[in-house]
Protein backbone atom coordinates (compact mmCIF):
# COMPACT_ATOMS: atom_id res chain seq x y z
CA UNK A 1 0.00 0.00 0.00
CA UNK A 2 1.16 3.52 -0.77
CA UNK A 3 1.14 5.19 2.65
CA UNK A 4 0.38 8.90 2.44
CA UNK A 5 3.23 11.16 3.56
CA UNK A 6 3.18 14.07 5.96
CA UNK A 7 6.05 16.37 5.19
CA UNK A 8 6.90 19.55 7.04
CA UNK A 9 9.51 21.73 5.34
CA UNK A 10 11.32 24.34 7.42
CA UNK A 11 12.55 27.14 5.20
CA UNK A 12 12.89 30.85 5.32
CA UNK A 13 14.10 33.68 3.15
CA UNK A 14 17.54 35.11 2.43
CA UNK A 15 18.74 38.16 0.54
CA UNK A 16 19.01 37.62 -3.21
CA UNK A 17 22.60 36.40 -3.69
CA UNK A 18 23.21 38.95 -6.43
CA UNK A 19 22.86 41.76 -3.87
CA UNK A 20 25.80 43.40 -2.18
CA UNK A 21 25.61 42.83 1.55
CA UNK A 22 27.06 45.06 4.21
CA UNK A 23 26.95 44.43 7.95
CA UNK A 24 25.94 47.15 10.40
CA UNK A 25 26.01 46.94 14.16
CA UNK A 26 23.23 48.37 16.31
CA UNK A 27 22.19 48.10 19.95
CA UNK A 28 20.74 44.62 19.31
CA UNK A 29 23.83 43.29 17.59
CA UNK A 30 24.68 42.98 13.91
CA UNK A 31 22.30 43.07 10.95
CA UNK A 32 22.47 43.89 7.26
CA UNK A 33 22.42 47.43 6.00
CA UNK A 34 18.94 48.20 4.57
CA UNK A 35 17.94 44.63 5.37
CA UNK A 36 14.22 45.26 4.91
CA UNK A 37 14.79 46.80 1.49
CA UNK A 38 16.93 44.03 0.05
CA UNK A 39 15.07 41.78 -2.38
CA UNK A 40 14.73 38.32 -0.86
CA UNK A 41 14.40 34.78 -2.21
CA UNK A 42 13.47 31.44 -0.69
CA UNK A 43 16.58 30.06 0.98
CA UNK A 44 18.00 27.87 -1.83
CA UNK A 45 18.62 24.56 -0.04
CA UNK A 46 15.30 24.86 1.77
CA UNK A 47 13.80 25.47 -1.67
CA UNK A 48 15.24 22.18 -2.89
CA UNK A 49 13.71 20.52 0.18
CA UNK A 50 10.31 22.00 -0.65
CA UNK A 51 10.44 20.87 -4.27
CA UNK A 52 11.53 17.36 -3.29
CA UNK A 53 8.73 17.25 -0.69
CA UNK A 54 6.10 18.28 -3.22
CA UNK A 55 7.43 15.75 -5.71
CA UNK A 56 7.16 12.92 -3.15
CA UNK A 57 3.73 14.04 -1.99
CA UNK A 58 2.49 14.27 -5.56
CA UNK A 59 3.15 10.57 -6.05
CA UNK A 60 1.01 9.45 -3.08
CA UNK A 61 -2.56 10.51 -2.76
CA UNK A 62 -3.56 11.83 0.64
CA UNK A 63 -0.08 13.24 1.26
CA UNK A 64 0.43 16.76 2.47
CA UNK A 65 3.22 19.34 2.61
CA UNK A 66 3.51 22.21 5.08
CA UNK A 67 6.06 25.01 4.77
CA UNK A 68 7.02 26.45 8.15
CA UNK A 69 8.70 29.79 7.71
CA UNK A 70 10.12 32.20 10.27
CA UNK A 71 10.77 35.64 8.83
CA UNK A 72 9.59 39.23 8.81
CA UNK A 73 5.94 38.99 7.77
CA UNK A 74 6.11 41.62 5.03
CA UNK A 75 9.13 39.99 3.38
CA UNK A 76 7.63 36.52 3.71
CA UNK A 77 4.58 37.76 1.89
CA UNK A 78 6.65 39.12 -1.00
CA UNK A 79 8.58 35.89 -1.43
CA UNK A 80 5.48 33.69 -1.06
CA UNK A 81 3.96 35.44 -4.08
CA UNK A 82 6.53 33.58 -6.19
CA UNK A 83 7.04 30.43 -4.14
CA UNK A 84 3.31 29.75 -3.98
CA UNK A 85 3.29 29.42 -7.78
CA UNK A 86 5.74 26.53 -7.70
CA UNK A 87 4.26 23.61 -5.76
CA UNK A 88 1.26 22.94 -3.49
CA UNK A 89 1.81 23.48 0.25
CA UNK A 90 0.18 24.94 3.30
CA UNK A 91 2.08 27.81 4.88
CA UNK A 92 2.69 28.16 8.60
CA UNK A 93 4.24 31.58 9.14
CA UNK A 94 6.09 32.98 12.14
CA UNK A 95 6.81 36.68 12.29
CA UNK A 96 10.42 37.16 13.39
CA UNK A 97 13.92 37.78 12.10
CA UNK A 98 15.32 35.78 9.17
CA UNK A 99 18.74 37.22 9.92
CA UNK A 100 21.87 35.13 9.64
CA UNK A 101 22.85 36.54 13.02
CA UNK A 102 19.90 35.09 14.91
CA UNK A 103 20.73 32.03 16.95
CA UNK A 104 19.84 28.57 15.71
CA UNK A 105 18.89 27.31 19.20
CA UNK A 106 16.13 29.88 19.63
CA UNK A 107 15.06 29.59 15.99
CA UNK A 108 14.70 25.84 16.45
CA UNK A 109 12.55 26.37 19.55
CA UNK A 110 10.16 28.63 17.62
CA UNK A 111 9.96 26.24 14.65
CA UNK A 112 9.36 23.20 16.84
CA UNK A 113 6.56 24.97 18.71
CA UNK A 114 4.92 25.92 15.42
CA UNK A 115 5.11 22.33 14.18
CA UNK A 116 3.67 21.00 17.43
CA UNK A 117 0.72 23.35 16.94
CA UNK A 118 -0.25 21.91 13.53
CA UNK A 119 -3.44 20.16 14.56
CA UNK A 120 -3.87 17.84 11.59
CA UNK A 121 -0.29 16.57 11.63
CA UNK A 122 0.33 12.98 12.64
CA UNK A 123 3.81 13.30 14.07
CA UNK A 124 4.41 9.58 14.04
CA UNK A 125 4.41 9.81 10.24
CA UNK A 126 6.34 13.05 10.00
CA UNK A 127 9.15 13.63 7.55
CA UNK A 128 10.77 16.87 8.65
CA UNK A 129 12.58 18.51 5.74
CA UNK A 130 14.67 21.65 5.41
CA UNK A 131 17.89 22.88 3.89
CA UNK A 132 20.98 21.33 5.47
CA UNK A 133 22.41 24.85 5.85
CA UNK A 134 20.85 28.23 5.35
CA UNK A 135 22.42 30.77 3.04
CA UNK A 136 22.33 33.27 5.91
CA UNK A 137 23.54 31.71 9.16
CA UNK A 138 24.91 28.65 7.41
CA UNK A 139 25.34 26.59 10.56
CA UNK A 140 23.55 23.40 9.61
CA UNK A 141 22.32 23.06 13.19
CA UNK A 142 18.69 24.20 13.28
CA UNK A 143 16.99 21.08 11.92
CA UNK A 144 18.80 18.76 14.31
CA UNK A 145 17.53 20.80 17.24
CA UNK A 146 13.98 20.97 15.86
CA UNK A 147 14.18 17.19 15.49
CA UNK A 148 15.39 16.76 19.07
CA UNK A 149 12.58 18.94 20.39
CA UNK A 150 10.07 16.80 18.50
CA UNK A 151 11.74 13.61 19.73
CA UNK A 152 12.96 12.46 16.30
CA UNK A 153 16.11 10.36 16.52
CA UNK A 154 16.48 9.38 12.87
CA UNK A 155 18.29 12.26 11.20
CA UNK A 156 20.10 12.78 7.90
CA UNK A 157 22.03 15.79 6.59
CA UNK A 158 23.31 16.80 3.17
CA UNK A 159 20.60 14.70 1.55
CA UNK A 160 20.62 14.44 -2.24
CA UNK A 161 18.10 11.65 -2.66
CA UNK A 162 15.30 9.80 -0.89
CA UNK A 163 13.52 6.76 -2.26
CA UNK A 164 10.38 5.89 -0.33
CA UNK A 165 9.01 2.37 -0.62
CA UNK A 166 5.37 1.35 -0.41
CA UNK A 167 5.72 0.23 3.21
CA UNK A 168 7.01 3.67 4.21
CA UNK A 169 10.65 2.62 4.61
CA UNK A 170 13.14 4.70 2.65
CA UNK A 171 16.70 4.90 1.38
CA UNK A 172 18.65 8.14 1.83
CA UNK A 173 21.80 9.42 0.14
CA UNK A 174 23.77 11.90 2.24
CA UNK A 175 26.78 13.90 1.13
CA UNK A 176 30.00 12.93 2.87
CA UNK A 177 33.64 13.87 2.32
CA UNK A 178 35.36 13.57 -1.04
CA UNK A 179 32.32 13.89 -3.30
CA UNK A 180 30.76 10.65 -2.05
CA UNK A 181 27.36 9.68 -0.66
CA UNK A 182 26.56 7.60 2.40
CA UNK A 183 23.65 5.27 1.78
CA UNK A 184 21.26 4.47 4.65
CA UNK A 185 17.98 2.66 4.94
CA UNK A 186 15.46 3.88 7.48
CA UNK A 187 12.64 1.49 8.36
CA UNK A 188 9.96 4.13 8.94
CA UNK A 189 9.26 7.77 9.72
CA UNK A 190 9.47 10.00 11.67
CA UNK A 191 12.79 11.34 10.41
CA UNK A 192 14.64 14.59 9.79
CA UNK A 193 16.19 15.23 6.38
CA UNK A 194 18.38 18.28 5.77
CA UNK A 195 18.57 18.64 2.01
CA UNK A 196 21.46 19.60 -0.20
CA UNK A 197 20.70 20.11 -3.89
CA UNK A 198 18.69 16.98 -4.56
CA UNK A 199 17.89 16.07 -8.14
CA UNK A 200 14.99 18.26 -9.21
CA UNK A 201 15.08 21.45 -11.25
CA UNK A 202 13.12 24.41 -9.93
CA UNK A 203 9.47 23.87 -10.97
CA UNK A 204 7.98 26.32 -13.44
CA UNK A 205 5.40 28.79 -12.20
CA UNK A 206 1.91 27.35 -12.23
CA UNK A 207 -0.82 29.98 -11.74
CA UNK A 208 -3.37 27.34 -10.74
CA UNK A 209 -1.16 26.07 -7.95
CA UNK A 210 -0.58 29.70 -7.02
CA UNK A 211 -4.27 30.40 -6.67
CA UNK A 212 -4.88 27.31 -4.58
CA UNK A 213 -1.93 28.11 -2.30
CA UNK A 214 -2.86 31.74 -1.86
CA UNK A 215 -6.13 30.73 -0.22
CA UNK A 216 -4.09 29.52 2.77
CA UNK A 217 -1.01 31.72 2.43
CA UNK A 218 -2.70 35.03 3.15
CA UNK A 219 -4.60 33.83 6.25
CA UNK A 220 -1.42 32.13 7.48
CA UNK A 221 0.46 35.40 7.19
CA UNK A 222 -2.31 37.24 9.00
CA UNK A 223 -2.23 34.64 11.78
CA UNK A 224 1.56 34.65 12.02
CA UNK A 225 2.60 34.70 15.66
CA UNK A 226 5.41 36.97 16.76
CA UNK A 227 8.60 34.95 17.21
CA UNK A 228 11.27 37.25 18.55
CA UNK A 229 14.80 35.86 18.75
CA UNK A 230 16.74 37.42 21.61
CA UNK A 231 20.18 35.85 21.07
CA UNK A 232 20.53 35.45 24.81
CA UNK A 233 24.11 34.88 25.85
CA UNK A 234 25.47 35.39 22.35
CA UNK A 235 27.87 38.27 21.80
CA UNK A 236 29.24 39.38 18.45
CA UNK A 237 32.65 40.94 18.99
CA UNK A 238 32.94 42.05 15.38
CA UNK A 239 31.46 41.54 11.93
CA UNK A 240 33.47 42.63 8.93
CA UNK A 241 33.66 42.32 5.18
CA UNK A 242 36.68 40.51 3.78
CA UNK A 243 39.49 42.40 2.15
CA UNK A 244 37.80 43.55 -0.98
CA UNK A 245 39.63 43.52 -4.19
CA UNK A 246 42.60 41.87 -5.72
CA UNK A 247 44.87 43.72 -8.11
CA UNK A 248 43.94 41.82 -11.23
CA UNK A 249 46.58 41.55 -13.95
CA UNK A 250 44.71 41.30 -17.22
CA UNK A 251 46.71 39.46 -19.85
CA UNK A 252 45.61 40.26 -23.41
CA UNK A 253 47.41 39.91 -26.71
CA UNK A 254 49.82 37.32 -25.39
CA UNK A 255 50.29 34.28 -27.63
CA UNK A 256 48.33 31.34 -26.19
CA UNK A 257 51.50 29.23 -26.06
CA UNK A 258 52.98 31.83 -23.77
CA UNK A 259 49.88 31.90 -21.58
CA UNK A 260 50.00 28.12 -21.34
CA UNK A 261 53.67 28.24 -20.29
CA UNK A 262 52.88 30.81 -17.63
CA UNK A 263 50.01 28.73 -16.27
CA UNK A 264 52.05 25.53 -16.20
CA UNK A 265 54.90 27.32 -14.41
CA UNK A 266 52.43 28.76 -11.87
CA UNK A 267 50.84 25.37 -11.22
CA UNK A 268 54.29 23.90 -10.58
CA UNK A 269 55.37 26.63 -8.14
CA UNK A 270 55.66 25.42 -4.58
Amino acid sequence: MNTPLQIVVCGSIVPDPLQTLEPVTGPNGPSLKNEMLLPAVLDPWAGHALFEAAHLAGKRSGSKVWLVSLGPKAKLQQVMMTVAQKVPFELVALDGPASGFSDSFETAAALAAAIEAIASLDRAKLLLFGGWESASRGTGSTLQMVGERLGIGEQFQGVDEITVRDDGSFTVLERIEGGRHQVSVCAAPPAVLGWATGNLPEPKNNPQVGMANMRTVMPALQRAKAAPISNTGLRFESVSLPKQQRETRIVKNMPVEEMAREIVAWIGEE
Binding site: P23, P30, A135, E237
Partner: peptide
Amino acid sequence: FYRQRMEA
Protein backbone atom coordinates in the same frame (compact mmCIF):
# COMPACT_ATOMS: atom_id res chain seq x y z
CA PHE B 1 27.98 34.44 7.62
CA TYR B 2 25.90 34.79 4.46
CA ARG B 3 27.86 32.15 2.57
CA GLN B 4 31.33 33.52 3.21
CA ARG B 5 30.40 37.13 2.59
CA MET B 6 31.21 38.45 6.05
CA GLU B 7 33.34 37.25 8.89
CA ALA B 8 32.33 37.55 12.52
